[in-house]
């Protein structure tokens, strides 16, 4: 059986397509740089792909709110294609700006009906500025998220100015928590696993003062996953800021690669079932 095909979106200020492609290819997929307009114009069909990735960047310069304009392009031009994609059990990931896109187009945290109406947002960090720093994530082991299976913690970089996850409906927040949709949280690296908490952790453990320390969420099916930090930026061990202090490190793919391998494996299984 061939390798799963990944559509890695590009264009309009998406910046992280190169390393996202690298991460998927290292995980055993074939990844294609896919300009949004090639899908909109019908030159390429989303249904021909097995995985959809919306990488990080500054689509449309983040003007009018991060992810808003690209989210609208997808929401108004590719709505049914995206719904059909998720309905056929194909995984979708949005990283950083891509996460903002998925939240603003209503795909995340999402609902069972795939109604694509916005219920949460990612707003300006409390520190009021963009920062690049490494954080520690902890993943909910009871989450349905297919991307984070078997992963307890990861060190990854955040690089954003608008990553504070908020909503206007606290009942929804409880519902998402209960269903395991608040799958990735910032956590104190000195604590022991599992120890994620809802109490907002101090800066810079939480780089943005996100509600309940949320760094990433999935939809009710666990197929659609979005997160502010950049696992693709840590595809190889030498990209960690700590590798020069580690003794007897064996260089190669990093621990963050598990996220991409999980999706590739899911796609293989999904194809077998289909």
């Amino acid at each position: 059986m061939g390798k799963p095909n990944v559509a890695v979106l590009s264009g309009f200020g998406i910046n992280c397509e190169t390393e996202t492609i690298t991460a998927f290819e290292m995980a055993g997929a074939t990844a294609k740089r896919t300009h949004v307009n090639r899908l909109v114009d019908g030159e390429l069909k989303l249904s021909d792909f097995d995985i959809l990735a919306v990488p990080g960047g500054f689509s449309f310069g983040d003007h009018l709110g991060s992810g808003r304009l690209l989210g609208n392009r997808l929401r108004f031009s590719l709505r049914e294609e995206v719904r059909a994609f998720v309905a056929s059990k194909k995984p979708v990931i949005g990283i950083c700006n891509g996460f903002q896109v998925l939240v603003k187009m209503g795909l995340l945290p999402g609902d069972e009906d795939l109604s694509m109406s916005q219920t949460a947002s990612l707003t300006a960090n409390d520190c009021g500025r963009y920062e690049d720093r490494w954080v520690t994530l902890e993943f909910d082991r009871n989450s349905p998220c297919i991307w984070t299976r078997g992963i307890e913690r990861l060190r990854v970089p955040v690089r954003h100015g608008e990553g504070k996850f908020v909503t206007n409906d606290h009942k929804l927040l409880d519902k998402w928590a209960q269903k395991g949709q608040l799958v990735a949280k910032y956590v104190d690296p000195d604590s022991t696993y599992p120890s994620s908490s809802d109490e907002i952790l101090p800066f810079p453990i939480s780089p943005n003062q996100s509600w309940r320390n949320v760094a990433g969420v999935c939809d009710p099916t666990g197929l659609v996953f979005g997160l502010m930090p950049h696992p693709e930026a840590y595809h190889s061990t030498w990209l960690s800021p700590d590798w020069t202090r580690e003794t007897s490190l064996k260089h190669g793919p990093s621990p963050a690669m598990s996220i991409f391998r999980n999706a590739v494996e899911h796609s293989r299984n999904n194809r077998e079932v289909a």
Binding site: T18, E19, Y130, E131, D132
Partner: peptide, 10 residues
């Protein structure tokens, strides 16, 4: 720190 020094992962 407010410059992105890690985009394109290299």
């Amino acid at each position: 720190r407010s410059y992105d020094h890690e985009v394109i992962a290299q």
